[in-house]
Amino acid sequence: MEYFLQQLINGLALGSIYGLVAIGYTMVYGIIGMINFAHGDIFMVGAFVALIAFLILVAIGITAIPLALFLVLIIAMLLTSLYGWAVERIAYRPLRGSFRLAPLISAIGMSIVLQNYVQLAQGARVKTLQPLITGVHTVLDLGNRFVVQISNIQILIILTTLALMSGFSWIVSSTSLGRDMRACEQDLKMAALLGVDTNRTIALTFLIGAALASVAGIMYLLYYGVIDFHIGFVAGVKAFTAAVLGGIGSLPGAMLGGLLIGLIETYWSAYFSVQYKDVAAFSILIVVLIFMPTGILGRPEVEKV
């Protein structure tokens, strides 16, 4: 029981990070129907920007952790969303309306460009950050040997994800930007005819997706403390899988998919063999897609007549 609960906490923290990255994939797919393969690397850029920001803040003497964290959050979200915007402007907008594969290839190219850029600019060695947020709380102590604990950083990750997720759902459902986004999702051309500035809406979508990815990058940096130019690839593949599992195009689906992938990996490692956790996660993905081709919360594409 305690063991199960402990693994639940571990899985939720891991899944939250996947979920935050997965939102970026699902949003872009929802609006322009392409897979933004560079999104995992935007996440990686976010983690690097955060690390550099931390080091600069320490260098100029801002060491109070809550303040530093807040400033890093702002800086990383701003700079990383600029990257997201630039990627859209440079690599995708000129190809909009071209054949379907063109932006996909361009996205893969962008991913390689970002990885190599960070590798050259920051070096190929792993970068480390000492644990900043420490401390653990006892969640459940039944007097047995095993005490269920949650660390402050795990709490922070889960709460931040919940907050961002609800904030973002609110934007999509209740603001004019959200209405524009939903309009673009339904029919890009029609939305444009009815006066929606589609370029602006799509650019903002990329901006928001990148900002969320940068938050995931910060969480990753704080949680694990080790980053390198390559982390975007694995995280990107996992998050993309999460988006597909949850139903690509669906926001709650991305979050659900992320949590599920995190939980499957964790529980598989907890009760079966650690070596096969990725095999387990991807096997479940395949099984789900066989029976639910649009993912868990995805809606089937309705052919409009």
């Binding site: 891991l14 095993f146 907890a270």
Partner: peptide, 22 residues
């Protein structure tokens, strides 16, 4: 006796497992 994958970053599951096994 367990194996993990080179390049993994998240070991929380295996760590909890060791904790449960004392």
């Amino acid at each position: 006796r367990e194996s993990y994958t080179q390049g993994d970053k998240d070991f929380t599951a295996i760590v909890s497992r060791m904790k449960a096994a004392d």
